[in-house]
Design a protein around this nucleic acid. Sequence first.
DNA 1: ACGACGGTTCGGTGGGCACCGAACTGTCGG
DNA 2: CCGACAGTTCGGTGCCCACCGAACCGTCGT
Lengths: 227, 227
Amino acid sequence: MVEVAALVGDTARATMLAALMGGQALTSSELADIAHITRPTASGHLAQLTDARLLAVTASGRNRYYRIASPLVARMLESISAVAAIDMPPRYRPRSAHDDATRFARTCYDHLAGAVGVAIADAMAARRLVAFSCDGGEVTEAGGRFLADFGADLSEAAAGRRIFCRACLDWSERRFHIGGHVGAEIWRCCHARGWFKRQRDSRAVSLTGAGRRGLHESFGIELQQDG
Amino acid sequence: MVEVAALVGDTARATMLAALMGGQALTSSELADIAHITRPTASGHLAQLTDARLLAVTASGRNRYYRIASPLVARMLESISAVAAIDMPPRYRPRSAHDDATRFARTCYDHLAGAVGVAIADAMAARRLVAFSCDGGEVTEAGGRFLADFGADLSEAAAGRRIFCRACLDWSERRFHIGGHVGAEIWRCCHARGWFKRQRDSRAVSLTGAGRRGLHESFGIELQQDG
DNA sequence: ACGACGGTTCGGTGGGCACCGAACTGTCGG
DNA sequence: CCGACAGTTCGGTGCCCACCGAACCGTCGT
């Protein structure tokens, strides 16, 4: 346990892990730039993270693509962020255009987070499509029908069993958004419809015009800010 | 995030946090002994952990009792342990009587873990009282009746909503046991009935004779080993 | 009022680790 | 076949932080 936490407890490594929480695999050099360290240093860190099975790597040509090794690791990083967010309030947090975009909409490993993620969770809760408790959430029968209609593949959840959707605490909004398998499916469908566009070197995603209309039509969401 | 992880990423602090995951508050000196460090060093560490809001402290006479600050912190430590457990297989793990007891039955902040915790989860799943998916679990209607009968107070979960029970990955058994509000209530009832006895300076709990009988009668569990 | 004890504060010391520059390996283009 | 580039390995340097002993501040017993 100490070993794992110590790996995350370094600025450079944490920055790289946070970048990889965007869900896309990144190369060694990209991660070095993001963490503002030289390539050799990054290489050392990445070797450590890979040895500890926090990251997985796939070689492609002369590039090596690193990614979060498992959902379990992603969940751990989430939970650390959640605790960190609580400690933060006294901390001064400078605003920047990039931060604003990240706060508005971003990917959280395999699902949507930020203001948009929370808005979707709120809208679905208001329509009784999902129900949240302090420990997590679940999809209602109406919600199951809605999601199936939306294009989500929930077959993985055994028949006759309620589908579970994990409540993932949002560090910027301090409220829940939808994670777990359900969250991943929602994001997959939104992405497939071209509602969001990934940005390079960032977890932030930008909302397209079609996305704005789609969110309004499907979820009844009106968003003030552009991504 | 870095700050929080770095705090956990030190052997002495991690040992103290792990000890506090037993759920009981411990004094500064006790924690110093557990971590095998001098009192001054422990005091420094505890101050850091308290400043970062990972621990809360209450003074009582000339003793200061430290405890995990919130369920969120407990959950974070759980998730770190879960990831660490996956990395561990190659690691040599010496057996000791104390370790065996801990593996058999222990508290995990506010609920039961270890072989007994997993056995209860398995028994309840087999009887369709709870259902687990990859992300979590939930109590069935029959399960709700069973737990109410058992003495569990599930009123906190809003009416008309399924009660959620968190699946907590067990580091020793590598399988799920029941956490969350439901897990806490099950442990509270078991403890109130005198089925388990806390041990000093350890997360391990010992199963009493009444506990053995009770687990058999209520859950149909037969356990081979003594705690 | 006095020792005893739990706990914290304060300097000083030491080890571990992040970091870099330079050199090396392997892969891709022409 | 030869530059160009992604990535890793290797020593060396420097900083940070855990740790301790000693002294200090409380509270509790008698």
